[in-house]
Design a protein around this nucleic acid. Sequence first.
DNA 1: GTCTATATGCGGATAGAC
DNA 2: GTCTATCCGCATATAGAC
Lengths: 213, 213
Amino acid sequence: MSTVTDSAAQPPAKLARMRSEDRRESILAAATEVFGDYGYVGATTAQVARAAGVSQPYVVRMFGTKEKLFLEVLLRALGLLLTSFRATLAEESDEPLSRRLGLAYVDLLQDRGLLLSLMHGFVLGSDPAIGETARCGFLEVYTFLREEAGYSADESQAFLASGMLVNTMIGIRMSDEYDSNPVAAELLTAAFPERLELALGSGAVDASTAPQK
Amino acid sequence: MSTVTDSAAQPPAKLARMRSEDRRESILAAATEVFGDYGYVGATTAQVARAAGVSQPYVVRMFGTKEKLFLEVLLRALGLLLTSFRATLAEESDEPLSRRLGLAYVDLLQDRGLLLSLMHGFVLGSDPAIGETARCGFLEVYTFLREEAGYSADESQAFLASGMLVNTMIGIRMSDEYDSNPVAAELLTAAFPERLELALGSGAVDASTAPQK
DNA sequence: GTCTATATGCGGATAGAC
DNA sequence: GTCTATCCGCATATAGAC
């Protein structure tokens, strides 16, 4: 009964080779989650590697340094954010723009870690490279609101402020308290004008990476 | 001429002994700045020690672990925040409450790192102890707004959102761009309804701790 | 109360095989 | 393209003197 499957005779199941571009994207996606959960300094390249299903040195090899990897994560996140906003702006709808952009923003929470990684970047202004990228990206979003979406300075402020509160609620994992704490539930409802369920879905850390560290 | 001052015969100038309470407070203040600049994971106990003018092991000895130190920093910051808010609420004034609370909030920026340390805590919900403290503290502020300040849920949301944007502008060091970038200047003006100068003052890292790391 | 010296573990990065 | 093995530095924490 030990030779049931001949497939067991294959060489040690190594990872299938992948086109560099695809592998790159899958590592970036994994890194986005990990950085979102633990922050730039707190996350390890080993965690990223595990989440991406590759070896730790390979992650470093592909991006040069952990910092460069994080910068790529930030740029990718900003790109996805602006792409989503521009698509929202282009589509025709009866809903007011502010509501549509708000929904688009909250929809980004489906890509776990995306807004959180950005938030971690925003708070690391003291790091030269990360700070520069973060400031630049934030200003790009502000410029989008002012020039493309046609918002006033005050409208932009209010929109960005709501966004930062959303990020904070996610980062602080306030959704953990939703069921047990009525105050938390009220706060969450106020923070997520619509699509509250999206906030509640992204509570815990993915089981595949969480316990190992 | 070698015995001009007998005081030179003293033992190697060690640090003056201090009452435990005072030393504790001075370390907490130093830690608040360092954690604000580099985050919980990024900051080292050696940096805190240097900023406080004591040895690294002493910092650990006094607080047990780095994590416990950070938790104390968070609790201290939350305490100062609520104390400031309650004082604002108690004072009589013709100004609308929302403006006065907003000013009180921005005034906290004078205690460098205070709001920033909080922000770092808010974004680390994945850490059990830190997350718990952060959620609890955030809810305490929300409860203050709702019950003591008499805000509605929506008013509270708007206030907290503005606060999170302020925190982000400080963390990202947007003020560095104020002079050279008109867009950044406009954004900052919108983010700080009043007391913009307080935001601009807290740009760089203290010279005594920055370069060493 | 405060320090110096140090053990220990962990994480980023490199070398080199396949 | 991807891995294994490993080096090295750094940061927390401990031991113990003063």
